[in-house]
C-alpha cells in the first residue's frame, strides 16, 4: 500500500523540525529518510510531491548556503530591514 503524500509531508515536517538548528536537510536526505522508513511503499515522486506540499503551504522554505536545504521559516541573520 502506498503511503498517502499528506502523511509523508507530515512525517518529513517532523524531521525538519527536529533537525532545525542542528543540520540543514536536503531534499535527498528527506527522500532517503522516507525510503529507509517505508521501503517500497514510497516512491521518489511521492516524496517530491510531499515536499511540494510543505513548501507551497509555507510550512517549510528552501534555504541556501553552499547547497539547497529544506528548513522551517525563520528570519535569516543576513537580512536587513
Amino acid at each position: 500500500m502506498a503511503i498517502p503524500v499528506e502523511q509523508l509531508a507530515d512525517e518529513m515536517y517532523e524531521i525538519v523540525k527536529e533537525s532545525a538548528g542542528v543540520k540543514k536537510l536536503k531534499g535527498g536526505d528527506l527522500t532517503k529518510a522516507m525510503v529507509a522508513k517505508h521501503g517500497d511503499e514510497v516512491s521518489r515522486s511521492d516524496v517530491k510531491a510531499a515536499i511540494r506540499i510543505l513548501i507551497d503551504s509555507g510550512r517549510c522554505v528552501y534555504g541556501y548556503f553552499g547547497g539547497s536545504s529544506i528548513e522551517l521559516p525563520h528570519t535569516e541573520a543576513a537580512e536587513n530591514q
Binding site: 542542528v22 543540520k23 540543514k24 548556503f65 553552499g66 541573520a77
Partner: peptide, 15 residues
Amino acid sequence: ETLPNLCEIPTTVAS
C-alpha cells in the same frame, strides 16, 4: 560570536 548561530559545525568542517 556569531558562528554558533549562523553555521552548522559538521557542515563547515566537511566543506
